[in-house]
């Protein structure tokens, strides 16, 4: 007798996922890192307005929940002195030119949190920064938004008595 077929879950319709994405909520979460409204609108589109729908839904859930934790902990804004790592706009490989710096997205990576993962391993911050900021923009920018929240949350937690 063949094993019963177990559905992990019913596949959600793309339109159903699109309906639960709250652009205003995501914009509010990003605001401390992206004070300019036009840039924020651009980034919200990058993260939940473009790319495969499952990515949009997943990125929204992760960032919105991290934003919720940050709000409950009273994390309001990132420290002003943190320059962060820029997220490049990737050119098609045949257009890359040595020495020509790419344009960057208006959201920088606060990589502080990555140091907690080092455990004595040199270079982990650089290696993971490269992993987080590579790939298609919707992917890289969702990574950066989430990591910024996690870094801020960690700082807040560690500052508690």
């Amino acid at each position: 007798m063949p094993p019963p077929h177990h559905h992990h879950h019913d596949r959600a319709a793309a339109s159903a996922i699109a309906l639960v994405l709250d652009a205003d909520r995501l914009a509010r979460v990003l605001e401390p890192w992206v004070p300019d409204a036009g840039e924020r609108t651009f980034l919200v589109r990058c993260i939940i307005g473009e790319g495969p729908i499952h990515h949009r839904g997943a990125s929204y859930a992760l960032i919105a929940l991290a934003g919720e934790i940050a709000a409950r902990l009273g994390v309001s804004s990132p420290p002003a002195d943190r320059a962060g790592v820029s997220v490049p706009m990737r050119l098609p490989p045949h257009l890359e030119r040595p020495g020509v710096e790419p344009q960057v997205y208006p959201l920088r990576l606060d990589a502080d949190g990555l140091d907690r993962l080092a455990g004595g391993k040199d270079g982990i911050r650089q290696v993971l920064t490269d992993a987080l900021t590579d790939g298609p923009p919707h992917h890289a920018l969702a990574n950066v938004a989430l990591l910024n929240l996690l870094s801020a949350i960690l700082r807040r937690v560690e500052a508690r008595p």
Partner: peptide, 10 residues
């Protein structure tokens, strides 16, 4: 296309 859309703000 997806390569261009996210390189322009609007």
């Amino acid at each position: 296309g997806p390569d261009m859309r996210l390189q322009f703000r609007a």
